[in-house]
Design a protein around this nucleic acid. Sequence first.
DNA 1: TATGAATGAGGGTTCATTCAT
DNA 2: CATGAATGAACCCTCATTCAT
Lengths: 226, 226, 226, 226
Amino acid sequence: MNRVHIRTEYTQSGKRGITVKANGKTAANKKLKKDALLNTAFELYTREGIQNTTISNIAEKAGVAKGTFYLYFKDKYDLRNRLIARKASQVFMLADRSLQETDLETLEDRIVFLADHIISQFSRDPVLLRFISKNLSWGIFKSQILAAGDEDDGSLPAIIEEAFRSSKVRYKNPEVMIFMIIELLSSCCYSSILYQDPLPIEALKPYLFDSIRSIMRQQEIIPTAE
Amino acid sequence: MNRVHIRTEYTQSGKRGITVKANGKTAANKKLKKDALLNTAFELYTREGIQNTTISNIAEKAGVAKGTFYLYFKDKYDLRNRLIARKASQVFMLADRSLQETDLETLEDRIVFLADHIISQFSRDPVLLRFISKNLSWGIFKSQILAAGDEDDGSLPAIIEEAFRSSKVRYKNPEVMIFMIIELLSSCCYSSILYQDPLPIEALKPYLFDSIRSIMRQQEIIPTAE
Amino acid sequence: MNRVHIRTEYTQSGKRGITVKANGKTAANKKLKKDALLNTAFELYTREGIQNTTISNIAEKAGVAKGTFYLYFKDKYDLRNRLIARKASQVFMLADRSLQETDLETLEDRIVFLADHIISQFSRDPVLLRFISKNLSWGIFKSQILAAGDEDDGSLPAIIEEAFRSSKVRYKNPEVMIFMIIELLSSCCYSSILYQDPLPIEALKPYLFDSIRSIMRQQEIIPTAE
Amino acid sequence: MNRVHIRTEYTQSGKRGITVKANGKTAANKKLKKDALLNTAFELYTREGIQNTTISNIAEKAGVAKGTFYLYFKDKYDLRNRLIARKASQVFMLADRSLQETDLETLEDRIVFLADHIISQFSRDPVLLRFISKNLSWGIFKSQILAAGDEDDGSLPAIIEEAFRSSKVRYKNPEVMIFMIIELLSSCCYSSILYQDPLPIEALKPYLFDSIRSIMRQQEIIPTAE
DNA sequence: TATGAATGAGGGTTCATTCAT
DNA sequence: CATGAATGAACCCTCATTCAT
């Protein structure tokens, strides 16, 4: 009886059924392999440097065959780019999630809050900082992060856009402003957190936040009195 | 007699002898080779990328034997660091020389002038910009440039120090200020000149200069009235 | 005394002397290495086939490092081409040297003699036959053999030209004739010596020589009676 | 008893059985896949070379999975051998079919006609020529072509045998004669059609046909007068 | 000082073959 | 029968570095 049932089901689902089932398993397996490669690569990249990381290393440590690497990535730089997008995106999303729980009003305060949160993350995880800073530029930021909707939701560009829309103050060129702030923040974190130069990050923070605020203020559009 | 004669000759032209006596020749020769290596390396680094440049390439194109390379540099990264120091230093020196011919008074104006001049240089030579930006960080800046007195004169640190001393306005933390300005300038040049992103450099300049000024102003020490 | 003599010589010969001496040794060494590679490669190519012969095999068996291979040859096909030229040239030269010791008069007899001699060589060394036949085509024959004057002397083209010049009989198209004879000879040797198919070489010879002669006769230019 | 039954059933539905029973669908499908693989392989072999053609390439371009390849062929050389047999056989059959429509009498004329027809085919399809010439030798010719009765009908050996039987002239060794003619024809086509060397095929033809005729004549058995 | 032949570890990449589905 | 993900051996080639000359 039971056997018959199974048979029936098997027959009913036929080729599609089997395919689906198989895909379910196979796809999960593929995802596992890919993730293993990504995680392992990140660890090796940050610990040994990209130059000193070989595909052999990655594959071996990830527990897959060397050839398997090439099923998922073109080469180690392809893998790196995907890692950057993923990691950088995570940092921003995490900061933003914290921001939601505050009731900060002005965009200035909100952006400084984000900067502070990002600094905290980087302080706790300098390895991540080194990896992102060394590899993240504004170009990659725009192309990879803003368009990184394939793996994450709640997309970053929407968040930024919303932030500016809900601000009472208007700015001359929001994109330029963000650009400068990101570059300044990134540079400062890199030098200050990793090398305590020109100051340790805690000492640098006041100057940095003041600089951010002054960059923003100087771009404010003063509403014409009426 | 014969032997003595030969010996004498040998000694005179020997290792030390040549160096001392033939200084005019050998030392000049050495300088030539070293320069050939530096110039060739710069061309190859910028054209092909450091990764794709081999010591063989450099030596061959420079017209010396491969082994000779090792007489002057430890490896290609050693050579790169010296190149960065040299090139970056030149950029600053050139800007400063121009500054001397102006009669700008305030430090703010003077620094903006320097920034503008540097932007001009990079605009005319994006290859140089790419090379310096990709490889220059504040750490290297301090260690290599400020201490790059071995090849160039009129040393940079002196210039900077003098600039601050002659300024009427005092700043909370001059080093931090310079650091931020350099990082911001460097980032903006890289993205804007090489990729016109977020704006072409001419369009970005006003925002950039305003940001620099606002960073400086916000660090001004308001003299307490007495 | 002896020492003085040496010293003197050393001094006298100076840079040039040393260079010459060194070159003598180095050059001899290079020739040795190159020959070792050529010989080893020939053995492996014929024993294992080119596809199954790796550069590692060759280098290892030749007693040099893998990298050394690339100092002398572009890849294993480059090496093969040079081998073909060398080996095929040797076969022809050997046959020709024997021919010199005969007093055969007609070109027909002389060419059949050459064919016979070549058949003998191939019969004794089927491995050589396989190597040459599998790789020698008329195109390679012309380009490599005829122009193989860099390593051997007494060049083949001169020999052939001389043969036709000294013949009393004239032929319509000597090059076409040689071409056909070589192709026929090569094909027959390959199949007959290596596989005794369609007949063992000794049994095939009469047919083959008759065919060669008939090909030649049919191209004779009958002198118009006067 | 049961076992016997099964055996019987097994035999019936076995390899042959399935083929017979499911002929309508499955067999047609199989034939389709096999043909797709053969055609694709030929295209890739001739366009890219056998060495550069991978089983992946073939399978992908043929629209089947990689594993499927192994259901039909042992490896890519197995596939190549079958291709050669098929293609070469087609060339001969086509030439023979044309020959049937003539009323040429002597074997000499008939063989020259065949040669001419084959040359035409190769002239129109040099790719085919290259493929066959590069891979066809007398040994393969005999084993594969003559025994290629599995896919084609009107078998070649019968045709040849018939040709000699119906000839008035007798030849000393027909097989040797055919062998030489095929090798000569094949060599000439290869060099002349593909490289116009030593002459373009149209210019070479007269010499070639004369050579074929002279090879045949010289093997004629002159009937002893009675 | 200068050379450049020699080295050989180690990298990236390919691809025939297997096998669970 | 058909699939295609996974494998991993094997290969080619580069190139920093050494060292005898």
